[in-house]
Design a protein around this nucleic acid. Sequence first.
DNA 1: CGCCCTTGTTGATCTCGATCAAGGAAACCG
DNA 2: CGGTTTCCTTGATCGAGATCAACAAGGGCG
Lengths: 246, 246
Amino acid sequence: MPDITTALKGCGECPIRHRAVCALCDPPELRELDAIKFYRSFPAGQTIVWAGDQMDFLASVVSGVASLMQTMEDGRTQMVGLLLPSDFLGRPGRGTAAYDVIATTDLVMCCFRKKPFEELMARTPHLSQRLLEMTLDELDAAREWLLLLGRKTAREKLASLLVIFARRDAALRLTRPESEFSFELPLTREAMSNYLGLTLETVSRQFSALKRDGVIRLEGKRRIVIPDFQALLAETGDDSDGGVPS
Amino acid sequence: MPDITTALKGCGECPIRHRAVCALCDPPELRELDAIKFYRSFPAGQTIVWAGDQMDFLASVVSGVASLMQTMEDGRTQMVGLLLPSDFLGRPGRGTAAYDVIATTDLVMCCFRKKPFEELMARTPHLSQRLLEMTLDELDAAREWLLLLGRKTAREKLASLLVIFARRDAALRLTRPESEFSFELPLTREAMSNYLGLTLETVSRQFSALKRDGVIRLEGKRRIVIPDFQALLAETGDDSDGGVPS
DNA sequence: CGCCCTTGTTGATCTCGATCAAGGAAACCG
DNA sequence: CGGTTTCCTTGATCGAGATCAACAAGGGCG
């Protein structure tokens, strides 16, 4: 609950921080969105919506991490969306959720009721253009993810995920990932295994291997230190120029 | 070259067929798009654009199949986009291609030069809304694909791909996939393996296994007969209600 | 027609990651 | 404070799919 206050403060105080908290609430749509937005927070582990449920709002992640999970009939699960701060949730023009949405950490979202949001969309070309841009970014991210799942080894997969975290973290701090860079892992080993298409045991073993080889250090179980970001990048198997040159 | 003529005829003659050939050329944008559209065709195997190349047009697939390919530094490749008739290629607001685009079969595309298309987008809210819808569909497809790559067995992967083909084929014929349904495979074993994150040997073995078990029959190497569509669906591992109930 | 070249099938073997199993460490709580 | 739970690590073994290799079937073309 204190998180909500923080988020609201962030929204009103500093344009830069604001940009980080709600990717949509930017001029000139800002004023109109303000009228219909509200904040919700969820504790870690809570399911926000179940696949197939009615979903009467759209939202943007303010702080924390949410994930979209897909389940097969025999119970196998795969993460199909990882929503970090500023990412968007929901599909305009659709009434029900296609995937389970889970708060992976404590989570605050900036929500918009579906009806007024869609009316605003119809009146505001800028809004759907912005949404198109964000969706295209998400599609690009999904395509990187396809390569990861289809062709990368377990070690490359984990290194790639750590790079994603490092870049997001650096973006929030308005720096670049530098030598001796450290951050908090926002996911459990199990959640990471669901992202990577592995078992949690394999994820754990790859952590140990990267640690053994000096690519990372662990402070406790959740804080990661990256002594040399380039060395980590080299472990991803990606083309040297691949991805966003964040 | 005769293909172009066919496509142009299709565009002018029958609204239903037209919808199938170019998903964008629909009223009321139709007239304005008509002015800037042109057709290009490519022989099977030809690379249309290389990743990183300048890309000064956007396009919609009229007939044939194109694929987006991503390559790792050591040569491993993964298909990250499969463009069937009516699918869209290109990203408004970006100058260079992010992936190799390859004509997997003989291909006809309806192209729009980037500049005029983007000007039209700015003037025509409907157009970016339509594009948003198509991009969201593609994102949903990518998320199904993530589940496939991350968690499905080789057999389930192949069955899932065959279902995708069957549904697309049925949609073009304006029927549903019924018992004793047959169609032409638009991809080589190698292209399928690049879609599925497998080797071509494994794909071939799974074809043999599905054939042995009576789930499919092969007429030659390219024509597939599905005696019982439900039986094929059961092999995908998906929730019974999963995906589009096409 | 015979040759090459692409595409697909099948077999033998190997390996990476899954599975099964045990135990450790930190947080939570009565 | 001990007991439970959650999260993580490590070991032993197994198996699905990769890899290496040989061959078959067309199809285009001189």
